[in-house]
Design a protein around this nucleic acid. Sequence first.
DNA 1: AAGACGGGGTT
DNA 2: AACCCAGTCTT
Length: 354
Amino acid sequence: MNAPISDDFATTLLAWYDRAGRHDLPWMHPRTPYRVWLSEIMLQQTQVQTVIPYFERFIATLPTLPALAAAPQDDVLALWSGLGYYARARNLHAAARLCVEQHGGDLPRDLEALIALPGIGRSTAGAILTQAWGDRFAILDGNVKRVLSRYHGIGGWPGTPAVEKQLWRLAQTHLPRERLADYTQAQMDFGATLCTRHDPACVLCPLQAKCAALSDGRVAELPTARPSKPIPERHAVVLLAEDAQSRVLLQKRPAVGIWASLWSLPEAGDHDAARDWFGRHLHGDYDNAEALAPIAHAFTHYRLQLQPLRWRGLGLRNLVHDNGDLRWVAREDLVKLGLPAPIRKLLLGVAQNP
DNA sequence: AAGACGGGGTT
DNA sequence: AACCCAGTCTT
């Protein structure tokens, strides 16, 4: 199956992009491979308006790929702090170091070589190659899945391999011969601003005459939603220990699991475990704790209830101090570390209410 | 094939 | 409260 010489879908989308698309996003000026890559990683599962301030801060601090490669992981995670999906930051960092070792400090201009880097899958590789160099590759992100599902009337959850394979084939078929960077951006903008999940602006849509979902009255039900599952709830106690200088005791989380490699408060599964941890690490009276307001934090796959307990004027037991994963941190140094969003919020709140 | 992985926004 | 979003990685 060969792509048509001139695809009406792509031509129409490009014309729409010229008058209604976004042409001034921060990573477009200048549009370098490194900036495109960083933006695409940040944009995975995250919307443009959320990404922009993080991108600006990140690129101002680490303006080049070699600068990223040379940075400590804690600095990279601090720049990512609050954006979520922290594996993206760890993979980005590792990939930058691989580029320095294997590709002369540049991002490779090759689909398979890009996919071989951690954090870059087929869609992100295509987005990088089209936007950085204008090469001819397809993308298949959430926007494109939604647009193609509707335009072609494709049912079935796009997360299933059969549906995804079909969508990839259609995405490939529609590729224009020219203006690949604009075409990639056009699809994203079209999905994000016109062909939205809820209440798409079909009345304004330049593809309305050929949209299968619109003519069949199936716009609202395509693409098929992910099967829903019950969300479990988990509870934990977090220990907010302060020393005589009001520094906070932080612990680096393990390299795997939720909030991997971020700095957080010491955490225990329940009060017995919290008391045990306190006794082994700190001088003072566990029962002298001040119970702060519980924190509710929602993830995609579970809900977390955190009970913060606060002590002041504590010291570490001599034998446990500083094996690398425990650290007293001054208030003003919190911004230098990668903290989970709810922990950062808690610590900033405590700082304002001493 | 299914689950893990964050946080913010929308409805 | 449920669902969604510029996905990728692990098992």
